[in-house]
Structures are given as C-alpha cells and as structure tokens.
Design a protein around this nucleic acid. Sequence first.
RNA 1: GUCCCCCUAGCUCAACGGAUAGAGCGUGUGGCUUCGGACCACAAGGUUGUAGGUUCAAAUCCUGCGGGGGACGCCA
Length: 571
Amino acid sequence: MNLHDALQEKITGAVTEYTGGLGIPDFSVEVPENTEHGDYAANAALMLSKLLGRPPMEIANDLAQKLADERWEVSAAPPGFLNFIFTDKMLVSALEEILTAGEAWGASNVGAGKSVIVEYFQLNIAKRPHIGHLRSAVIGDALKRIFQSQGYTAISDTHVGDWGTQFGILLWAFKTLVKEEDRHIYEEYPFENLEKLYEIANLRILQTPELREYGKEEFAKLERGDRENRKIWEWMVDVSMKKLKESAERLGLLPFDEHKGESSYEKDMSLIVEDALKKDAATRKEDGAVVVDLTKEKLDEAVLIKSDGASTYVLRDLATIQYRKKEWKFWKNIYVVDVRQSHHFKQLFRVAELLGYEGVGDSEHVEFGFMSLPSGAMSTRKGTVIALDALLDEAERRAYDVIREKNPELKDAADVAKQVGLGAIKYFDLSRNRKSDVIFEWEKALSFEGNTGPYLQYTYARLKSILRKAGNVFFQPIASVQLSSIEHKLISLVLRYPTTIENALLDRSPHILAAYLYELASVVNEFYHARPVLQEKNEQMRALRIILVTVTANTLRNGLDLLGIATPEEM
RNA sequence: GUCCCCCUAGCUCAACGGAUAGAGCGUGUGGCUUCGGACCACAAGGUUGUAGGUUCAAAUCCUGCGGGGGACGCCA
C-alpha cells in the first residue's frame, strides 16, 4: 500500500473513533504546495468542524494525538490542517523496498481481469500522417502503457478511416482526371499525388457543388461492391497501411492489436439498422434515410443511413462498438480523439445504450484540444499540413547538432539523436493538459531546454553516469545519518510515484505523470548539485546517496517508459 | 437559434474546493582546481477577463456580462 492510502486509512479510522459513528465527511489527503507544511496534509478537522459544532483547531489537536505513528510526525496547524512529516527512519527503510522492486516499482495488478480498448492514431487512407495526428498517437500510446502497468489488458486499435464519401470523391477524381498512362506516377509516389488530387477535387467541388454528387455516387458504388472501384480502393488501402505501420514504428508506439478499418464493419451495418428500427422508438425512416431522434436529449438527430443509401460514420462506429463488446468484452472503450468530435461521441454512446450494445459509461471520449498553426487550422484540402515525417526529420537533425556540439565523443550519436528528438516532440504534447488547444510552433515543440523531454532524458543520463562511477553498492540499514531537507524531499517525492500513476490513469491524463517526472528531475538535479555523492566522506552517507540516485533513476526510467519516451544511458 | 470548451506573469503552460497562485521561455545577476553547464542558484514579473453569489476557505463550484474557439450541415 502506498503512503497516501495508508494515511487516508489511518485518518478514517481515527475520525470514526472520534465522532463515534456520526459519519465521516469527505476529507482529502494532499501534498501541500509549501513543503514546510509537511509531506502530506489532511483537512479532516476542517471538514468535521461544522458536523461537530466545534472549532477546527481543537479537533485537529485531538486528532493529531490519535494519529501518532512511528512512520510520521503529525501536528495541527491553523486554521485546522493536520500536517504529516515522514520520519527519516521510515524514508530510509522505504528506499530499500523501492530498490528491491526495481523494474516493478510503480507497477500493480489492480486492473487484472479488466480489458480496455484504446483507440488512437486514427489515420485516413490516402493521406500522410501529419502533426495533427501526433497528439492522439502519443496520448493514446501513453494511456495504453499506463493501463498495462496496472495489470489491465489494454487493446489498441487505430480504426483506420477507409470508408466514406471522401473516398468516393477521390475515386471520382482518380477515374476522371488521371489518364491511364499517368497512373504509374501514382504507384511511385502515391501520397504526394493523391493528396494533390484530393485538393484539386475539393477545389472543383467548391466551385461547382453539384460535382459532389459524383463522389457520393462513386462511394455508393464502392459500398455495393463495384469491381473497378474496389480495386482502386484496395490499392489505396494497401499503400496507406504500409505507411501507417512505418509511422507508428518511427514514433515508437507499442504495436497495435487491431488494425480494423471502418470498412471491416460494413457487413454488420444493415443488421444494426434493422435492429434499431425494430427495437428503438426514436429510430425512423425519413426520405430513404434512417435517423435516430435525440432532440429530446438535446443531442439533435443522429443519421445512420443517408438518403442515397450510404452509411454514415455514426453507423460505422456503432458497428465497431458492437464488435468490440462481443470480441473483447471490454470494461472500457476509450477514444482518443480531438474535442471537435465530442458531439458525435455523445450521440454515438447514447444510441449504443439505447440499442443495448453497452452500458452507460462503458465508452469514453478522451478528448484533447486540437492543434493548429500560427496561421490557422491545418487542412489537407487546403494543403497547409506539416507532415509527421518532416517534423521527425527536423527534430532528429536538431538533436544531432546539439549532441555533436556537447558530446562529440558519443558513440551512437545518430540513434541517440532519434531518441532525443522524439522525446522532445512527445513530451511537448504529453506535458500539457490534454484538453487545451495547441498552436504548433517549431521552436517550442523542438526545444531541448527547461521543462522538456530532453531535460528529463539528460537528468537520467547524468544519474547513470554517477552510478557507473560508483560501482556496486548494497543496501545497508543506515541508522546514524540524518537526512538533509533536500534528501528528505527527494525520497518523499519518489514515494509518491505510485499515487501519481493512479491519478494519471483515473483522469486519463498522462500530463499528470509528466508533471511529476519533471518535478522529480528538478529536485534530483538540485540534490546532486548541493550534495556531492561520490566525494562524500562519510561511508554510510555516501552509500545512502548512491542508493537515492539509483532509486530516482529507476523512477525516472519507469515513468518515462510509461510515457513512451526513451531513456538513453548517455547523451 | 441551441449546446460545449477556453480566458492565470511579456510569451507558452501548471495548480486534486485549502495555507504565501507555481514552472519553463524570455530579461538581469551569479556558479565547475568536486560526480558531463541540455545543469544549478538568486532577482524582477499577478487584482487568476469582469460583476455578483455559495463556502470556515474560490483560479477552481453557481449566475450574469465581455472576449475567443468549437459543435449542431445526409463530411469524417
């Protein structure tokens, strides 16, 4: 059990005894911002004041006596906080536990038997991944890793966008605008050309909106199984999937468990529509279309089938939920998608409930703010996107330059540059609250100084450098040394690691973990600048500091691993 | 028209209803004859858009107003 929970339990016990069954108010156990207030603080006495009709300080003093424990010193502070300071003895013995845990430090089994689907990095066929796909990829990947570390069965799915009117438009443009003898150019450079073609097609539709009907017709034909359309479409899917795998690998994402595109659900769709019309009173036909009326719940109408007979993405997502429930019996089904689709997901989840495909709250939209450029929104149709490959190339190049300048002796400079460049990019997205919008700026995304991925990686490399020189040190009980305040602070911080993971998981917010790791790196940097490790004369103190460095390095490595950020030993 | 989100230091962002609102960048000053300076220390910088309300306690919850963004189009 972690210390946060131990305190919570201890206080609950003391309060129960104190009030004699009057009930326990919702109190919190938190880390105070000001470290002088202790390692943890609880507001239980403040919450009890009204219930008992007595001044909070009085209650706090009483509770403080009941909460005495060899693991901490407890005191009451105005206006009625209970402050806990861990004893040196407890902190030092906790170090031994963490040291023993090693790789498993922070892992748990609380999620055993529960499976979670995480959908992210949803790419579209015939388009290259661009920087707008990055947030979904790194947040989703981090969530998968965090879930796995807590014993959940996490299943990742890209849910490829390979179905819909946009492919009709592309098919129409390809068939009417590209001559037979020019098609080999498309074979050689599919993305550049298809993106250009899509851009041109949309431009034409903008000028002559009726042309859109041709696109819709081509998609309807594809959906009916037209051979020529099918063949062209399959070729596009094929080249796109190769690209997807290449990009996922380059980003260092965990392998995907499912690569099911929207098209894989086409067979189930008509059954779902029949089912909906039969079971659900809110579903009705309207000019050949099928819609679910959610206006009473202020969710407007969800369209399942368009009047031309083609499916919508609500229907495709519905089929996906049905499949996933059947196949994986998921406990949670999580979509890492930007906030602009929140209305869609509200509709989708509601319809899935109405049809009995899942329970309330089984599916979640883990939304994030969308990314734009200083010049405005990115758009493939307008040709204003920054390709993912371009970003990664630039990141690696800049990281390589810095390595050449700062550490010319480094052996695997090119490999390390990849890890550092990628670390900067991932951390840029993972360190901020996922809900806030992001304006992409090269200089900020590729910064290597301050609160950045490379700073964390650098801190880890420095700690490893100290440990390489230290040789083997074995844990020994250290009774006679007194911890300095920075050492106390560092150990206490390391001990908070499991609680931090728990919070990041509960809130589906990797940035909680990122913020913690940054704080850990700052504190350990402060520590080894202020307290020499290898030069320390006192044998016991030296051993203690080496262990502290070991444990902090492990925590950094484990935590960065959960964020999908590599930890080179030297950089 | 209906609904959702955002507004915190010059800039980019943190802050689970709690104590003196914190970081990074930028600016200024200082720090390796001791473990790699992608580092560390110190300083300046704030009426948390605004007006009310709830609470022992509000950046955080509620309401109005102002400003910005997004969704609701048979696009995905």
